[in-house]
């Protein structure tokens, strides 16, 4: 069983990121569930999504002790890393989380910066994060995720999203070698 949490602020797309990951897991024949918690603001405010992937039935729908946490803001990082498993991994947006929590396995990637500089818009940050997550966790295969992204996003943006996914994957890959 793999427990994953995606956190940030409303508008960063962390819930979409989680949904696509869960879709990919289901497409691979695994069991998966996805839940979320969010405040009243559609933009800004806290946003959190969770995914549990398992070969068995999943009853309790929330993450108990995550194997992986993504934090896209300082506030989210401070709030959501504490219950990580000892061997879990914390992925941070390097620029948006200037003060990383004191956690052993922390990976910092300039996620939003990559989205802006490589793809052209900050709104691709969640797909960059998804690419990095796929590489870091190995929870689902890259190709299946890519297909799920392509199915979900508007047709005109498929190419940019594919680029974002790859950029995130490569950024993580470079750090993990």
């Amino acid at each position: 069983m793999s427990e994953m949490r995606f956190s940030g602020s409303g508008g960063q797309g962390v819930i979409t990121c989680a949904i696509i990951l869960a879709q990919a897991a289901v497409a691979e024949g695994k069991n998966a569930i996805q839940s979320q918690a969010y405040g009243p603001a559609a933009r800004g405010g806290s946003s959190k999504a969770e995914v549990i992937i398992s070969d068995d039935a999943i009853y309790h729908p929330h993450v108990e002790a995550p194997d992986f946490v993504l934090a896209m803001t300082q506030e989210a990082a401070d709030k959501y890393w504490h219950d990580l498993k000892d061997d879990g991994i914390l992925l941070l947006d390097e620029n948006l989380v200037p003060n990383p929590p004191a956690f052993a396995k922390t990976i910092r990637i300039p996620i939003t910066h990559i989205a802006v500089s490589d793809i052209g818009k900050a709104l691709f940050a969640n797909i960059v994060a998804l690419g990095a997550t796929v590489r870091i966790t190995g929870a689902v295969s890259y190709d299946v995720v890519a297909k799920c992204v392509a199915d979900r996003v508007p047709p005109a943006t498929v190419e940019s999203n594919m680029k974002a996914l790859k950029a995130g994957y490569d950024a993580a890959d470079a750090l993990m070698k």
Partner: peptide, 9 residues
């Protein structure tokens, strides 16, 4: 809300 907003296989 638990089941309403839950996404599941």
């Amino acid at each position: 809300e638990i089941v309403g907003h839950l996404r599941e296989r």
